[in-house]
């Protein structure tokens, strides 16, 4: 009985502490407020059922986000992405650009493919390291770093509408 009360209290505390973060993560994944709330509901429902399997009660966030990601994947049939995780050394970094105005940022994030959006959200919303993201996504740390780099490149590149270095053209424009 006492153990049960403790579990209920801990669960309640967890819901209050993390439901907002989970909602935001779900929303940026699925881009639908209604579905996002459902995902959060299902996440906590599953979390309650599997509460004893939580290995680190002091830090349930990674576990909850993993459940949510699985629920999201279950909801939408996930096609196997033909995504090539090049070594980070092979990535060329374009020249300095600035991000769009804030009102466009949400649309830019929306436009990222899921393969980039998901690790990006795990990092920016979840606060996870590259190693933790790699573990969540079941990819190598190098692959996680490539995707994160690509995500930021894409966000910066989408503003200008192209992704090729434009040093030559800028030089001509000035002339």
């Amino acid at each position: 009985m006492l153990l049960s009360i403790g579990k209920h209290r801990t669960f309640e505390h967890t819901v209050r502490a993390f439901s907002a973060d989970l909602f935001r993560f779900a929303l940026w994944l699925c881009r639908d407020r209604f579905v996002a709330e459902e995902l959060v509901q299902e996440t906590f429902s599953r979390a309650w059922s599997a509460w004893e399997s939580l290995r680190d009660p002091g830090n349930p966030k990674p576990w909850l986000m993993r459940i949510l990601r699985n629920e999201h994947a279950r909801l939408y049939e996930r096609k196997r992405l033909d995504y090539c995780d090049e070594e980070i050394e092979d990535l060329a970094i374009s020249d300095n650009r600035s991000l769009a105005g804030e009102f466009e940022i949400g649309q830019l994030i929306d436009s990222l493919p899921l393969s980039l959006r998901e690790p990006f959200l795990l990092q920016t919303l979840g606060g996870f390291t590259c190693a933790e993201i790699a573990e969540q996504l079941e990819i190598s740390e190098g692959a996680a770093m490539v995707r994160l780099t690509r995500a930021r490149q894409a966000l910066r590149g989408l503003v200008a509408g192209d992704d090729a270095p434009r040093r030559r053209r800028r030089g001509n424009d000035r002339g």
Partner: peptide, 21 residues
């Protein structure tokens, strides 16, 4: 850029979400 992205990601959460859960 990251600071602006972080701000943009902080969308409003439905009121009473925790209570409904």
């Amino acid at each position: 850029d990251d600071k602006r992205i972080a701000a943009a990601l902080q969308v409003a959460v439905p009121e009473g979400l925790a209570e409904r859960v």
